Simulated assay, not measured.
Amino acid sequence: MGIIEIEGMKFYAYHGHFTAEQIVGNNFEVYVRLETECVKAAESDNLEDALNYQAVYETIKEAMQIKSALLENVSKRMLDALYEKFPVIKKATIKISKMNPPMGGEMERVSVTMER
């Protein structure tokens, strides 16, 4: 078993409860942690035996492009897509952070983490 982490993926997207958030958009950061079998890829040194990080990134990018009111919804969509496209995933954790959220005070980010 191995763990693959993709950290600091940055996107501009239109997620949020407020209408202005869905029009103006905001910066988001995504982290994914995937547990999968890595022994075959480690031995063969062949991408076909590995979980393709680029394909994982593209799956997350596609999910970020669909507007949602809640980060929980975006997270679920990502998890659904990852498990559908990559059956070798044993466990996945997704963390989505909205940078500088419009919550009436100064804060760096608000985040939602979900795992399956």
Rank of each mutant, 00 (worst) to 15 (best):
E108Y: 07
I3E: 02
K85Q: 14
E29R: 15
E48G: 05
A50G: 05
R116S: 13
N100S: 14
D49Y: 10
M114Y: 01
M1K: 12
D45G: 06
V74G: 01
V24N: 12
A63D: 00
M64C: 09
E72K: 01
N26F: 02
K61C: 08
A42D: 06
E84V: 08
Q54A: 14
L47I: 14
E108S: 14
N27I: 06
V30L: 13
M107V: 15
N46K: 11
D49W: 10
A42W: 04
K90M: 09
L70T: 08
M114T: 00
E48V: 03
S75F: 01
Q65G: 03
M1P: 12
T59Q: 07
M9S: 05
K91L: 13
M99V: 13
V24D: 10
A81L: 14
F28N: 00
K98Y: 08
Y31G: 09
E72P: 03
I60Y: 07
V88E: 13
V74L: 15
T36K: 07
E35Q: 09
A69K: 12
E29G: 08
R77L: 10
L79E: 00
V74M: 04
H17I: 12
L34G: 02
K85D: 05
A69T: 07
K61P: 00
T113A: 11
T59N: 03
V88C: 12
N46R: 11
D80P: 06
E62H: 12
Y14P: 08
L51Q: 09
G8F: 00
F86A: 06
V74Y: 02
F18K: 15
K40Q: 14
K91N: 14
E115L: 11
E106H: 02
F11Q: 07
G105Q: 11
